[in-house]
């Protein structure tokens, strides 16, 4: 076990060195979420000041954008950290070392969390200073929302990383595009009730749906739906298991297919 932790720490240090080596990379982590938040923040201010029927939903909109970004950036952080290994032609070095797939996944998760904190904290501060939207108004539920979204982002990241190992650079674009499929189905900006009835089971099979419904319950009714968060956590445990199994299966499949040594060439 100490050896395993040592290997996870070594990999996390490796990713930290990369991050530290370029201020442009650090800026990039903050830049996109900050710009996105500016756009939605101005819309929030406009709706809030308009005193129209839309004013009451302005906070919902901004809260949804913030939480969606946690999910999106969490997955990007996981996948891009992994893609570094492909881009630098280092994957075979890692596969030939005693590093286990679970340890690699754990270090990617840790790094995704670090990148998320670096990217999210300044944006939250910006939202509060510029638009007066205090995300902490969501109370302790915010931690549950954050945790569940991060777990989902890791499960998706594991599948994408597995596909990149199996299919090579062809699957790289999934890193950007896979989350867009979820956007309409997990009801980020509208309640599940807004979807056609036949899509409800699909929406409830997706963990972010529970988070965004929970967020609306907090912001509209002032109630924290513990039941939703527990269901979400249970579903996340299943998805993480599926994600890791998929990652290992695709890695094994890549060993049959060949090409791990030359990956990144």
């Amino acid at each position: 076990m100490p050896q395993s932790l040592n290997r996870i720490a070594a990999m996390t240090a490796r990713y930290y060195y990369i991050l530290r080596s370029s201020w442009l990379r650090l800026l990039e982590i903050v830049y996109w979420p900050a710009m996105q938040m500016m756009v939605w923040g101005f819309l929030y201010t406009y709706l809030y000041d308009s005193k129209s029927a839309m004013a009451s939903t302005a906070g919902l909109l901004l809260g949804a954008v913030l939480l969606w970004d946690v999910l999106f950036r969490g997955q990007l952080g996981f996948t891009f950290t992994f893609l570094e290994e492909i881009w630098s032609r280092n994957l075979a070095n890692l596969m030939m070392s005693p590093l286990q797939p679970l340890e690699l996944a754990a270090s990617l998760m840790l790094m995704s969390l670090i990148r998320l904190v670096i990217g999210t904290l300044p944006v939250l501060l910006l939202t509060w200073l510029l638009f007066g939207f205090n995300v902490y108004a969501m109370g302790p539920g915010l931690i549950a929302f954050f945790l569940n979204l991060v777990l989902t982002s890791w499960a998706i990241g594991l599948v994408v990383a597995g596909l990149v190992i199996r299919q090579g650079f062809g699957a790289e674009s999934l890193a950007y595009s896979i989350m867009i499929v979820l956007l309409p189905l997990c009801c980020v900006y509208y309640p599940v009730a807004a979807l056609p009835v036949w899509l409800h089971p699909v929406a409830w099979s997706l963990t972010p749906t529970y988070v965004f419904e929970g967020m609306r319950a907090v912001l509209l009714d002032g109630t924290f739906r513990v039941d939703l968060m527990i269901e979400c956590l249970a579903l996340n445990a299943v998805y993480l298991g599926i994600g890791f199994t998929t990652f290992v299966t695709l890695l094994q499949s890549a060993r049959h297919k060949g090409g791990l040594l030359t990956m990144g060439e």
Binding site: Y17, I18, S88, L261
Partner: peptide, 13 residues
Amino acid sequence: NFESPYVALPGRL
């Protein structure tokens, strides 16, 4: 352990 021209050490480190 091994060394191969197909594999590189992380260039940014």
